[in-house]
Design a protein around this nucleic acid. Structure first.
Length: 725
DNA sequence: AGCACGCCGACT
DNA sequence: GTCGGCGTGCTC
């Protein structure tokens, strides 16, 4: 007797079970090869009269198989069991146990109904839906399609993507009464969009229902948020919805305020991670239900189910916060690109700086540049000066001043007119060295800046001026041995406070981020990304540790440094208003020159050309695969990569280290992992992702043989790894 | 991942 | 005969 035979104990669909049971057994005996038209169930529950089969996406990440499972729809759940609703189903071998009394052995797990159908292709008896969690159809067809596209693009599972895309349920938030959708507003005036060559054109295209795509290089200053709000309002005026994604809560609050100003209260939703579960779900639901047509939020908002999407906006796409940190690590820019293409909606990628990826969107013709002419740029940007090795050699006074003269003067001059911003890399970013004996910090003989070890064993360099120090000894106690210390904003603040007594010093960093500072003279020491906005703009900014920012062993080091510098410099008053920026870095370096000329696009275009030549992303597509050496080797042996794929490595991966320099797929503590990079030429990205996904799925399904360690261990796959050595 | 099934050797 | 070892494979 087959299991299937013994299983046929009941039948749904109404009517007396007896003759149908016989038919069922007959069918089983014939070893039925033909898919059954009618679903059968374990229990004799009555089924829905129409479309008695629910195709369910089982929300179980470990399955790593993007498959649907068919369940029977009991009559009493017929009405609630609509496509998109959350359900609970029995899943697992236990539910198939034929022995009496243990038929329901499998565990209850969550899932979504993706479709109602008349028949099933499954040749066994169907289990019935256990429960419809709520009648709210949270997973619409469009969101499902998008999630699937994202899963494919990133070689991840659909269930993983849905975990990012659909927020956890909160019952109280659902019970709120429906609110009628707002009427479309009138299109806004162009406002400060007039500063850009095609700004007005872009807005009127959106307002007329068209879907323009642009890479927008925003002029420095605070107007960007209002400009985004105007683009949103123009889109709403066309009767469509709009979605804005920004890196963190602070810019989200800025756009939120600008939208409230331009649209009034209650016309848009704010979706950020720091809101509580209930509030987050409530806002998300109001978007899904069409009660608000505009959304601003951080990265999880990229999936927000906005109705009739007319425009997607991403601000500052170079910020690492746009890359989700949960598998399969989708990036906001890429996801919104997918949405713009699939939904044929407008696309606006904006920032003060310009990523290589953004430059590529323009170069490929997918998006148009939206830039201001040089005249406008010169009028809005501060004056940028550099302090490098050459300057320092001639700088006698620097020794006494503890800072290069130019920097010192710029700070002192700036403090006469307002607040001065000092940007220092994040704590842990730059290890500071100190005398092992007396703990006196190791300082540069030229400018008294902190000495740093480039790499273990290599020469020491000054973190301020970049000059090498060949023969250090402690000036206090004469010691020759160094120990690593960590320098942060606080320590820098102390040092600068001593250099400029009688001036208030404030710090903004990871632990405590200041949002704004008054326009009165003060030193504001901040880590990149945490810079407060100064009322009326900063009078000056000092960008320290340029060498450390540029010297990171990362493909994006130059682009990243430029983006951080521009991010700080954009908060400084224009050159006409006396705004000055001093960057302590070698003036001949490309990112430094780009900052001086305020030409982020030129920098990105040149980088893009170089990446194309070297076969680096984003011109080619890369994926990082990491895991224990045997697991990785097995994976690579089994994977059928596209013929044009090139495997680089494997190389050992460092263990997960604290700080921003964590590597993709860092090994868990105590384990030695390896990583390969797999590169494919343009056009083969989808094939690579598909191959990786298939190989991973096979691995998960099969289980690794030959290893003592037991079942197959997943390798970590990351398409578009963030930092490539 | 669970969990059941099943093919094998040792036991009442 | 029957109990239970873990090696495979499925989950609607």
């Amino acid at each position: 007797m087959s299991r299937e035979n013994g299983a046929g104990v009941g039948e749904g669909g109404g009517g007396a079970p007896e003759p149908e049971q016989l038919a069922l057994i007959r069918e089983s005996v014939r070893k039925a090869k033909v898919p059954r038209a009618k679903p059968r169930t374990w229990r004799g529950a009555a089924l829905a009269k129409e479309l008695p089969v629910a195709r369910v996406l089982v929300d179980k990440g470990v399955l790593h198989l993007d498959r649907y499972f068919d369940y029977a729809v009991p009559e009493e759940l017929d009405e609630a069991a609509q496509p998109g609703v959350r359900v609970r189903v029995r899943f697992g071998a236990g539910s198939r146990n034929v022995r009496e009394g243990r038929r329901e052995g499998g565990g209850l797990i969550d899932g979504f109904i993706v479709e109602r159908r008349a028949e099933t292709e499954y040749t066994g008896p169907l289990a019935a839906l256990a429960q419809v969690v709520s009648p709210e159809p949270v997973l619409g067809a469009e969101l499902l399609d998008l999630a699937r596209a994202v899963a494919d693009r990133y070689a991840g599972s659909l269930a993983d993507v849905l975990q990012l895309a659909v927020p956890p349920r909160h019952a109280r938030a659902e019970s709120r009464a429906a609110v009628p959708p707002p009427a479309p507003p009138a299109p806004p005036g162009a406002g400060s969009w007039r500063r850009y060559a095609h700004g007005e054109e872009f807005l009127s295209a959106l307002a007329s229902g068209a879907s323009p795509r642009a890479v927008w290089t925003a002029l420095p200053g605070p107007q960007w948020a209002e400009e985004i709000a105007r683009a949103v309002r123009a889109t709403l005026a066309s009767g469509r919805g709009a979605l804005v994604v920004v890196p963190t809560g602070r810019p989200a609050a800025r756009v939120d305020a600008a939208l409230t100003e331009l649209l009034g209260e209650g016309q848009h939703a704010l979706l950020t991670a720091d809101a509580g579960q209930e509030r987050r779900y409530r806002e998300w639901l109001s978007v899904r239900r069409g009660e608000v047509r505009a959304v601003v939020g951080t990265r999880a908002a990229m999936f927000a189910p906005v109705r009739d999407l007319g425009l997607v906006v991403v601000w500052d796409d170079g910020d690492a916060n746009h890359s989700d940190d949960r598998a399969p690590f989708p990036h906001v820019r890429e996801v919104l690109e997918l949405r713009a293409t699939r939904d044929r909606c407008g696309f606006l990628l904006g920032g003060w700086s310009c990523t290589v990826e953004a430059a590529q969107l323009v170069e490929s013709g997918w998006a148009a540049p939206l830039v201001a002419d040089r005249e406008q740029v010169r009028g809005a940007a501060p004056l940028v000066r550099t302090v490098g090795d050459g300057d320092l050699a001639r700088d006698e006074a620097a020794r006494a001043a503890r800072l290069p003269t130019l920097a010192w003067r710029a700070v002192r001059e700036g403090l006469r007119h307002g607040p001065v911003l000092v940007q220092v890399p994040r704590r842990g970013y730059v290890p500071r060295l100190a005398c092992e004996r007396c703990r006196e910090p190791a300082r540069c003989r030229g400018c008294a800046g902190p000495l740093e070890a480039q790499d273990s064993g290599a020469a020491l360099r000054c973190g301020w001026c970049g000059v090498e120090e060949g023969a250090w000894h402690c000036g206090e106690c004469g010691g020759f041995r160094l120990r690593a210390q960590v320098v942060g904003a606080r320590r820098t603040a102390e040092e600068l406070g001593r250099a400029f007594p009688a001036v208030p010093v404030r710090t903004s960093g990871r632990e405590q981020v200041l949002d704004t500072v008054p326009g009165t003279p003060a030193l504001v020491v901040s880590t990149p990304g945490a810079e407060p906005v100064a009322d009326g703009g900063y009078a000056a900014a000092l960008l320290l540790d340029g060498w450390a920012m540029l010297g990171r062993p990362d493909l994006r080091a130059g682009e990243d440094a430029l983006r951080r510098w521009i991010g700080a410099a954009a908060l400084v008053r224009s050159q006409n208003a006396g705004g000055t920026v001093v960057v302590v870095a070698e003036a001949t370096l490309r990112p430094v020159q780009a900052l001086v000329r305020w030409d982020p696009v030129g920098h990105a275009v040149r980088e893009l050309g170089e990446r194309a030549e070297l076969g680096f992303p984003p011109v080619s597509r890369m994926a990082a695969v990491s895991g224990r050496p045997e697991a990785l080797a097995e994976f690579l042996a089994a994977a059928e990569l596209p013929p044009d794929a090139v495997v680089l490595g494997p190389v050992p991966v460092r263990e997960a280290a604290p700080g921003p320099s964590r590597r993709p797929g860092a090994a868990p503590p105590g384990e030695q992992w390896e990583r390969v990079l797999i590169r494919v030429p343009p056009g083969s990205g989808a094939a690579l992702a598909a191959a990786l996904k298939v190989a991973q799925a096979a691995r998960m399904a099969r289980g690794a043989k030959g290893t003592r360690e037991g079942p197959a261990e997943a390798v970590r796959i990351r398409v578009d790894p963030l930092d490539i050595g």
